[in-house]
Structure formats: C-alpha cells, structure tokens
Design a binder for these strands. Structure first.
Lengths: 349, 349
DNA sequence: CTGAAAGCGCTTACAG
DNA sequence: CTGAAAGCGCTTACAG
C-alpha cells in the first residue's frame, strides 16, 4: 500500500489563514464583509479562497449561528396538479432570498403531515411553508411558519383570492351571454372550491340560471368515472359548464365531445388554475390563474422577516392575491349569442 | 424590564446528562444505541430525552460526522409534467432511507443547472440526484451523484426503458389491427422521444405503414399552435395516432374531435407517461407508465451505497427499468378492426 | 460500563 | 486593523 499523504478533501478557513499567514478570524471577516479588515487584505484573501476552491461549511455555520438557511415546504401531494406550480414558485423565491428548500409530501394524510413537519424541524429548518391538507388547522409551533391556503380558512398567511377568481369567470360567462350555467365542483367540503363557486355565483345571480354539480356526490350515487349527465344538461338548455378546476373541465369537455356536442361552438367550458396542459387543448380553454410568484414572494418574505426578527410565531396577516383571467375561448351560447354579445361592456348583466 | 431568566429554547445532550447525573457521552451512546451502556440506564435516558422534548441538532451532528443526511434533487423544470412524479417518488424513497431532499430547479438552463448543483454542494448535501436538461452531460464531481435519464444517454445511472415502452405501444396497436399509424413526437433531438419512437417502430415495421410527425418542425413551418393536420391524415387512412407524451396525445385528441372524428371509435390515440389527468378524459387514454417508485429506489439505493462506502464518484450502472402498459382504450380501426381483432395473440403481426 | 476530552469549522465578542 | 479564544452540540476514540 502506498503511503500517499491523503490530502484533506475540503479546505477550510484555517487553510486559507495559514496560506496567507493571517488568522482565521480575519479570513472569516474578509469573506463575510463583517468586521474591519484592511482594504489590501480583503482581495488577497478572497482570491486565495477562490483559488483554493474554498466552500464554507454550512454545518459549522449553522451550528454557530443557529440558522440553517433552509426552509421546509410541506405539500399534500407533490404529484397532483397545482402543487408543482407552488413548489416551483416557492423554490425560486426562496433561492432569491438565499434559502434552500427541503420538501416533504404529506400524502394527503394528517398524521404524515404532522410527522413531516417534525422531521423538517429536526433537520433544522429555519421556517416552514405549509400547504395544509384540506381541513387541517396547523397548530402553533416553535419556529416561524407560513400557511398557503384559501382565504376562508382561518389562520392562513397568504392565498389566491379564489372568490374573486370565481367572479372573473362569472362575469366572463355573463358577458358572453350565457343564461343557463352549470358549475362543476368536486367536493363541497373544500374551502377553495366553495370560494370559487361562491365567486361565480355572486356575479351570476339574478342574470342566469345557475346549478351546481358536485362530482363526489354524483359518483357516490352513480359510481366512480360515471358520466356526469352533461349531454342531458345541454339538451335542457345549459350552454356553459364552469368547473372549479381544469381537471374537471377536461372531463366535461371530453364528455360533451362524446355526445357530439361541439366546444366551444355549442357549449362553453371554463376551468381554473391554467394547468400545464390547458394550452394543449384545441381550442385552448379559458381559465383563471393564481399569481404563484407573488404568493410565493409574500410567503417567503414574511417568513424571512419572522426569522430575522422575532421567532417562534405564526407569521403574516391573511394576504389575498388576486387571480387573473386567461381568456382563450370566447364563444357565446350558440345562435342566441350574437344578440347577447352586444351586451358586452355593460358590466352587470 | 423584567429579569425573567430566559430559559434556553432548545435542550441538548448536556441538559439530559445533567438532569440524570450522567455524562453526555453516555447519553449520546444510549440514544444512538452505539457503545456500551448499562441496560438499566438506556430506558431512563430515553424517557428523559422524550420528556424534555429533546431534538438532536443536525447541524452539530453534520459538523462532527461530515454527513448532512440530505440529498439534492436537480430537475429541469419542476412544474412540467412527469417531474412532479419523479420528485414525489424520490422524496419517498429518500425519506424511507432517512434522507431529506433539497430541491433545485434548473429552469431548463445549463448554466442555472451548474449553479444549482454548486449551491446544493455548498449546502452540504451528501449526494445528488440529477435529471439533466436535454443534452447535458454531467461532469464528474466531488460527491456521489446519480443521473436519471434515457438509457441512450451515456453516463446515466437509472432510467425507464423507453424503447421497451414504445414496443409495448407498438404491439398494442398492431394487435388492435392498426395498419396505418402516425407517431407524434415533439423534438427529434430528445433521446427519450427517440427511444420511444424507435421502440414503437421496431414492433410495427413490416406490419404497418408508419410515419412520424415532429411537432416542433411542424410548428416552425406553420406557426406555434397550428393544427397538426391530423384530420387530413385520418382521411388518407391513418387509424392510430401514437404520441410520445400524453400531452401531445391530448392535443391530437382534441384536434380530431374538432374535425368530428370520434375517438376511439374511428381513431385510436395513445400517449406516454400516464399523466395525472389522463384518467379524467372520457374515455380514458391508453398510455405507458414509468415505474417511478422503482427508479427512485434504485437511484437512492446506489447513492446511499456510494455515500456509505467509497465516495466522490459517479454511481450505478445504467439500470433500465421496464415500463408498463395502461390499457384503457381498445378499439381497433373502425369496421376493419373486427377482422384484425382475430389476429390477437399471434405476437408479431 | 462510564466519563473526560478532543475536535468538526465557523462566528463573534474581546483584547491588543 | 488583527488575533487568540471561546463555544455552538455532537460523536468518537481513549482511559479508567
């Protein structure tokens, strides 16, 4: 066996200090920009660090300062629609603030969610961003945390204004001249869905006949994957189908297609969230989009603020970020639509 | 100002040791299960730790052991299809092995990808899982890493067998009796797409007329979002449209619908990846699915192995994980299909 | 079986 | 402006 002196792999402040004949404190100060260091020394130290390929030890820094520079992100289900958008926006915002993101998937289970939060805390995150599983109330904890949820949920920090988003869709449909509309939701226990439905209703009431179909209830009766009876609805006069998610809008659209009802010529379909594939549909679907970058920025900003200032408390003050309409499909309800089209711009119907 | 003795928030090994009148070494040994500790002491120490709400400091442990217990995951684009599936599977596999996952989004940019890798290393990850941006060759680094990519890409660690997946689709279509098939890809520079196309071709050649449509090339000529001319293809005899992704399959399906061509009665459409919304389509689409849990397990296992054993090298040996067919749509090519249906089971056409 | 001690790499008062 | 020293909380040989 050769006795090649195994050179230490990672070099540290001491190595730089030794190479330059100064103290580690000076090197640390020069590199961090804190404390007084003679102007002539700073560049020499910086260059040497660079040349030696110095990589600061986060572990040591974290141990010393008590801050890890890492935030935890808890999601109910990374793989289901919308959450990837959230994760991406959060990662960017955190990255821009110098933080890393540790992810945890609660798999839609409250127990797993609690466990995930604990594991994240054990890993030393400085704060937590939590997108709670439906109906979960996050108990207070020892570290700062931000909750992204519906505005109707008590205790949230920031969220899209789902009600206002619903209102955008409602107005859109009213202006197109629709007077018989079916709203399609999945689960009436969801705050987000209720807000969206409520928003749509609010701008439609009085000017259109509105009915709501809850898919889970429908499937409980007719079996999973059963037809939603949309063709029948169409026959009895419904001209617009407004779903609380692009996912359900897609289901509605294909169901109408199967009944040979043309979209958007004969019936209009709208969704929510502008999911990735929404633009792959021909013609693309009108949807409403959350401003994820802004939501993420607000969540991260309030978290960073809490970390740097006081700590151990829930942060934020229920900020509502407006949603925006992505208009892609503007047909009205068939032959009648032309008449109604002229009503555009009246605001209310 | 009151002089309330600010009690230390986090309690450590020393606190437990003091409370029990033993040394920190003994507490450490008892809690970790290493070293010899009298049987009577172990439960007392454990209970005390529990009672005091002890949470070990990862930072200190990491500093001492040189291992952070965190792995970095680099993705080209968290929000686009398929990557959320990967992220979820990786998070689960890592979590099961006691590792946390720090995410980074390379935004499809090679520069950002390199920077992201460096940042992850600076944060002290023990290893890296990289899903490289198309065409990127990952240079060797100082820490263990696993690459998830197409088998055709040199230097990958584990991947789905896209060619074999393509063969599954090809066989499926051949058995359904299709004799005139259009394969739909997006970009011929993608190894994954080429593998899938190649696999489909391999089982179809000699028994069907096969053509390939590359969407990017088509759009370069006719503009983004242009119709793909599928109705014309149908008119000239094409009965099956096999896309390299559910996303393009969706586009194809809606385009056919707009031309009043019924799916699947008149034309069959297949996709790849069994994306989240694939089952929301009526009728649901036949697709082919990667075994993400297995891919993730293999990636994590080889990484953990490299971390515990030798280190600083690329790991793994190009494992190909088979894909599986999700059959949801079994119609053949119209009136002719009945004849061909009887050929089922012949294996080759 | 148990404990005293060293040391991981850093930052931060505190002297000089 | 610069350096010596303490200490963050843990683990790991090494004595006893």
């Amino acid at each position: 066996m050769s006795v090649t002196p195994n050179p230490k792999q990672t070099i540290n402040l001491g190595d730089i200090a030794r190479a330059l004949g100064v103290s580690v404190a000076t090197v640390s100060n020069a590199l961090s920009g804190k404390g007084r260091v003679s102007a002539s020394l700073v560049p020499r130290i910086r260059d040497m660090a660079e040349a030696m390929g110095y990589v600061p030890s986060q572990a040591a820094r974290a141990l010393r300062t008590g801050k890890s520079g890492v935030l935890g992100l808890v999601l109910p289900d990374i793989a289901s629609p919308l959450f990837p958008q959230i994760a991406q926006a959060i990662e960017r915002a955190a990255s821009a603030s110098g933080y890393g993101i540790l992810i945890a998937d609660s798999r839609g289970d409250v127990g797993v969610q609690t466990e995930a939060i604990n594991r994240l805390i054990e890993r030393g995150v400085d704060g937590l961003i939590i997108v709670p599983r439906r109906g979960t109330r996050i108990a207070s904890m020892d570290i700062p945390f931000a909750v992204i949820d519906s505005p109707s949920t008590p205790g949230n920090t920031v969220s899209a204004d789902h009600w206002q988003g619903g209102a955008l869709i409602g107005t859109h449909l009213a202006l197109l001249g629709h007077r018989n509309i079916l709203l399609i939701g999945n689960n009436p226990a969801s705050n987000v869905q209720n807000d969206r439905i409520g928003g749509m209703r609010s701008t439609l009431s009085g000017c259109a006949t509105v009915d709501v179909l809850w898919i889970e209830q429908h499937e409980a009766k007719h079996g999973a994957g059963a037809l939603l009876g949309l063709a029948e609805r169409f026959e009895s006069g419904t001209t617009a189908f407004a779903a609380v998610s692009d996912l359900h809008a897609l289901r509605a659209m294909t169901e109408l297609h199967r009944a040979n009802i043309r979209v958007p010529e004969q019936a209009t379909i709208t969704g929510f969230d502008d999911l990735f594939w929404a633009s792959a549909i021909t013609p693309a679907m009108t949807s409403v989009r959350m401003d994820m970058p802004r939501i993420a920025d607000i969540a991260i900003a309030s978290l960073v603020c809490a970390i740097d200032g006081k700590s151990g408390d829930e942060v934020g003050e229920n900020t509502r970020v407006p949603m925006s309409l992505i208009t892609r499909q503007t047909s009205g309800p068939g032959p009648v639509s032309n008449t109604h089209h002229h009503k555009r711009g009246t605001g209310t119907c």
